[in-house]
Computed example of a mutant assay.
Amino acid sequence: MANGSWIPLWLHKLSSPPIFYRFAGLLRPWAYAIAIVLGVIGLYGGLVLAPPDYQQHDAYRIIFIHVPCAWMSMFVYGVMAVAAFLALVWRIKLAEVVAMEAAPIGAAFTFITLVTGSLWGKPMWGTWWTWDARLTSELVLLFLYLGVIGLYHAFEDRRQGARAAAFLALIGIINVPIVHFSVNWWNTLHQGSTVRLFGPSKIATSMLWPLLTMMFATKFYFAGSLFGRIRADLLVLESGKDWVRTIAAGEKA
């Protein structure tokens, strides 16, 4: 079997920078629009319609930001790691771009997770920070994102920097299951999972649906943001190519 021959023809075509540039341009506004609509619905459901928690009262409402961002901090790292794997094995230029442009978005989600977790932890635990297994592994996740970003920009040759950063991204993937399962593996202050894909969730429906709505909102925001960053990066990376000159000429006209 030829190297990479298992990859479908449509995926080969989509990985072409000019084709993906147009594809991302078409989908980006839709992704942002859906993210805004779902975000407004989710926040209204969580901050207004959902009842106060019987223990935490209104302080728990920060979960409608904290939990979706925590989920996204791991999801984005998974996307980055898969793209890094494709870039290293098959040297796909677009995969390098996807991996490197996903990193700042993932870092932002992780930072928001840590900040909102601290804001939530103060009234619940009486402290802004504790070296809890979940919090510590989430902090390590942020450092991994920053390490990928820093290593990428440490090389003058962008593609060489992307390959070096891709190695770090793959090594760091081991931390993602640690973040996810830390509350099960260690004695931790952080509460266990209340939302389950299989089996009943340990959360009232009036609180669950806004949380899931916010989860989808952050997914679509990530897609729109990633598409925009990839488009901008492709223009720089392919600046000497005819298709970029054509776009530049059209914008000047």
Rank of each mutant, 00 (worst) to 15 (best):
I63F: 10
Y221G: 06
S137P: 05
L151M: 14
M215Q: 09
F181S: 00
A103D: 13
M1R: 11
A154V: 10
G4Y: 11
L119D: 04
P17D: 09
A133G: 08
V79A: 07
V195L: 06
T136N: 03
W125Y: 06
V195M: 06
T116C: 02
V98Q: 00
A33F: 14
G39F: 04
L43E: 06
L139S: 15
L189S: 10
W186Y: 15
F216Q: 07
T213P: 01
G161W: 00
F111I: 10
V195R: 01
F227S: 08
I174Q: 03
F23W: 15
V37H: 11
V236K: 14
Q56F: 12
S5I: 10
W129Y: 10
P8W: 11
Y21H: 14
R22P: 00
A84E: 01
L141Y: 07
A248R: 14
S239M: 07
P18F: 09
S225E: 03
A248V: 09
C69E: 02
W185I: 13
V195F: 08
S201F: 04
L234Y: 04
S5W: 04
D53P: 05
A162Q: 09
A166C: 14
I173C: 03
T130D: 09
F23S: 08
R22L: 10
L168G: 06
L11H: 09
W129A: 05
D132C: 07
L212C: 09
F143Q: 05
D53C: 02
G250N: 13
L208E: 07
S118H: 11
F216C: 02
V40W: 05
Q55Y: 13
G199D: 10
H180K: 15
I7A: 06
I41N: 00
Q160F: 04
K13T: 15
S193K: 13
R245P: 00
A99G: 12
W120V: 05
L139K: 03
F109G: 00
F167P: 00
